[in-house]
Amino acid sequence: MAAISRDEVANLARLARISMSDDELDHLAGEMDVILGAVKRVQEVASADVKPTSHPLDVNNVTREDVVTPSLSPEQSLSGAPATAEQRFKVPQILGEE
């Protein structure tokens, strides 16, 4: 039995906000099955007594003094946006979708 179905891949693509053609889905479902078959090896040694490591360093929250320092201007911040209006990012309609 396949580790992952085509429907599951379609659902993941929806969650990841990537449209996919039928061809893309067919192809990717097959590849995902092979890759998952290979990477599931991690389960062989991942016993309950092993602590997980999420990062090579002990990551701590870093804060700075609350002092105003030079930063990007609004124009610079918006300079790469596909569309802007009134010093804001202009987005397609977000309400009224199904």
Partner: peptide, 10 residues
């Protein structure tokens, strides 16, 4: 998957 991989990292 992700959890087991983190253990391998350890």
């Amino acid at each position: 998957y992700y959890g087991s991989a983190q253990k391998v990292r350890t």
